[in-house]
Design a protein around this nucleic acid. Structure first.
Length: 109
DNA sequence: CCTATGACAGACA
DNA sequence: GTGTCTGCCATAG
């Protein structure tokens, strides 16, 4: 599972994960999956941010995400954005094309 | 089947 | 830098 591979203190973008999963256009579905994923799944969802490192989660969730990130040593600037230059996750995998993502592909995200 | 929606992204003003 | 608009595509109604 991609999200689980994101190391502590790092962050990855929705689009990046989508690309790794096989199709960069699936960013919204990645977001959808995280939204639907239960807290009990124990996913490090807080390490997933929007393009450019901006936190896309509005309201309280966003503050919670920023809080968790900072707790891992990730600096979150104004407007809730992390510096991907510094904290961006660099996976060591290929970006080869693969089938589209769907709800039960949670294990790939 | 058809429309609306969204934790996105990229292009543009 | 900020605000809109457009392309996307799985889900929900």
């Amino acid at each position: 599972m991609l999200v689980r591979r994101i190391p502590r203190g790092k962050a990855a973008a929705y689009g990046q994960l989508a690309a790794l999963a096989g199709d960069a256009r699936q960013a919204r579905q990645v977001a959808w999956i995280l939204h639907a994923a239960p807290e009990s799944a124990g996913l490090p969802w807080h390490r997933v941010v929007g393009a450019g490192g901006r936190i896309s989660l509005p309201g309280r969730g966003g503050r919670e995400q920023a809080r968790r990130l900072r707790a891992e040593g990730v600096r979150v600037g104004q407007g809730g954005a992390v510096d991907l230059k510094t904290y961006g996750w660099k996976p060591r995998l290929s970006t080869g094309r693969r089938p589209p993502i769907s709800e039960n592909d949670l294990n790939r995200i």
